[in-house]
Design a protein around this nucleic acid. Structure first.
Length: 506
DNA sequence: TCTTACACGTC
DNA sequence: TGACGTGTAAG
């Protein structure tokens, strides 16, 4: 697509150590993404390019917020990727999950995010299976893969299979590619899969926007919020309207979009794209492991990478946005959508790296069966849920199966249950739940997971912040791929270390 | 903080 | 044209 202009590639092949700042990835217009990749045998060579990276970066700078509602709310920006390196004839299942980035609860005060306490217990982990799954490699690589229909909810009893999150908590979306051919069924020991994470897609779940700048960015770029964009005419019209009813009228846009020197919740100040503490840079670490295992809950967050910014910036234009609030009106006029292709940045991740350990969570048990049986025609998304482990769970040592299954993680509880699967087998049926369970069960916060991985692959990027040596993204452990559904549930990822890049509690 | 109805927009 | 996606404002 035209959009794929700037991309970051994440291939599991690149050895972490070898990743140098200047690796090929960087040479691309966009900086290497913090993405982490975990690859298993048979999954080498797969590359995932994050689309619209520039937009993601804009949000990330400010501290991305995603609305969660009882009915379920889509993510914006939408998670879209371009995948290459798949075997054209093999079948794959693409799924996503959203794991806790850490075990903190956040608050937005003084125009910035800060830690306000310990996180609530992780919601049951759920996996969202792309509606086209399973599909051949040629299908996935032919076009962009969009997860636009994925919805986030704060309803712990959500019956729709949406991904359940806690408000004011930080999360990291992850993409898992699971090979689904006969010899590689989901849940089988040999299931091959790889996981990709892009640190710039991390976000804080909220029930209402906290940072006005985020609201503004959403309005400017989301077509469905077009009605809130202010054109001069519209503003006048609005003002007139408002005045007629109330007092002093201030253009909505002005009001809403006040600009405050916002501090990037994700880390530093929101100045340049480059400096997010959050982002894991190239974090491309890949490990061979069972991705399928439920994504570990919180995985470690990417560490701030100074360099990253630079990369980010490659991407074009953000000008107005960054500029002050006062210019808002104008901003509105230009939507992301309308932006030139150059605006769309994509991330390219080498999935082939020496496999970073992937979150085990993603392993959908029983998937294989379903996958094989179900037809692509069935496009209902089903969710599989599992209790979501937190990456940082101390009890877990790593994204290994070693963690005992806690009651909370019991596979398939009535409420958590599912993974969103397009095909029936997985649909909200019990079977589906199995998968789901796998998915998040016991995923520790990313940070913990990462940090604890004994075997860590480093990102190509230079260490971002000394303090955060262990960026979740970069380090993954590899685990045996053969786990039973139950086992999956028990998997916990632990990534240690990384503390949220966001501002510390004040 | 969260929920809801609403106007406005896309698809 | 209707279903659905948005942020807003009120409660």
């Amino acid at each position: 697509m035209a959009n794929a202009i700037q991309e970051r590639v994440d291939t599991g092949k690149d050895s972490p150590k070898e990743n140098k700042p200047e690796n090929h990835i960087r040479s691309l217009s966009s900086p290497p993404s913090p993405q982490t990749t975990c690859t298993q045998q048979g999954m080498d060579g797969i590359k995932v390019y994050m689309q619209e990276r520039e937009l993601w970066d804009k949000f990330h700078e400010l501290g991305t917020e995603m609305i969660i509602t009882k009915a379920g709310r889509r993510m914006f920006p939408c998670y879209k990727v371009k995948v290459t390196g798949l075997n054209p004839k093999s079948k794959y299942i693409l799924l996503m999950d959203v794991v806790p980035a850490d075990d903190h609860r956040y608050k937005f005060a003084d125009n910035k995010w800060s830690v306000s306490g310990k996180a609530e217990p992780a919601m049951p982990g759920r996996l969202y299976v792309h509606p086209d799954s399973p599909a051949t490699g040629s299908h996935w690589t032919r076009q962009l893969v969009s997860f636009q229909k994925l919805k986030l909810t704060n309803n712990h009893l959500d019956p729709f299979g949406h991904i359940i999150l806690n408000s004011m908590h930080k999360y990291q979306p992850r993409l898992h590619i699971v090979k689904a051919d006969e010899h590689n069924g989901f849940g089988s020991k040999n299931t091959a899969f790889c996981t990709h994470m892009f640190s710039e897609t991390s976000f804080i779940a909220v029930t209402s926007y906290q940072n006005h700048k985020i609201t503004q960015l959403k309005i400017e770029n989301n077509p469905f919020a077009k009605g809130f964009r202010g054109s001069d005419d519209m503003e006048l019209h609005r003002m007139a309207k408002i005045q007629s009813k109330e007092y002093p009228v201030v253009p909505r846009s002005s009001v809403r979009q006040r600009v405050c020197p916002s501090v990037s919740p994700f880390g530093g100040e929101a100045r340049g794209l480059g400096s997010h503490p959050y982002s894991c840079e190239n974090g491309v670490s890949s490990t061979t492991q069972d991705l399928l295992t439920p994504p570990p809950g919180p995985y470690t967050l990417p560490q701030p990478d100074p360099n990253k910014h630079m990369q980010v910036y490659h991407c074009n234009k953000r000008k107005a946005d960054d500029t002050c609030p006062t210019t808002e009106h104008h901003h509105y006029k230009k939507s992301y959508i309308n932006s030139s292709p150059s605006d769309v940045a994509s991330y390219y991740h080498p999935s082939a790296y020496p496999p970073p350990p992937l979150p085990p969570a993603v392993h959908p048990p029983g998937l294989s069966d379903s996958l094989h049986r179900s037809e692509a025609g069935q496009r209902q998304a089903c969710m599989f849920a599992g209790s979501k482990p937190r990456l940082d769970d101390p009890s877990c040592t790593s994204w290994s199966y070693s963690c005992p299954l806690t009651p909370a993680m019991t596979p398939m509880t009535p409420t958590d249950p599912y993974m969103t699967f397009p095909h029936q087998p997985y649909s909200s049926s019990p079977r589906g739940s199995q998968l789901s369970s796998v998915a998040h069960q016991g995923s520790p916060p990313l940070e913990d997971s990462l940090s604890q991985c004994p075997y860590q692959t480093q990102n190509s990027r230079p260490p971002q912040t000394p303090q955060h040596t262990s960026s979740p993204l970069r380090e993954y452990h590899c685990y045996p791929t053969s786990l039973s559904p139950t086992q999956y549930h028990t998997l916990h990822t632990q990534i240690r270390g990384g503390v949220p890049e966001w501002s510390e509690p004040t």
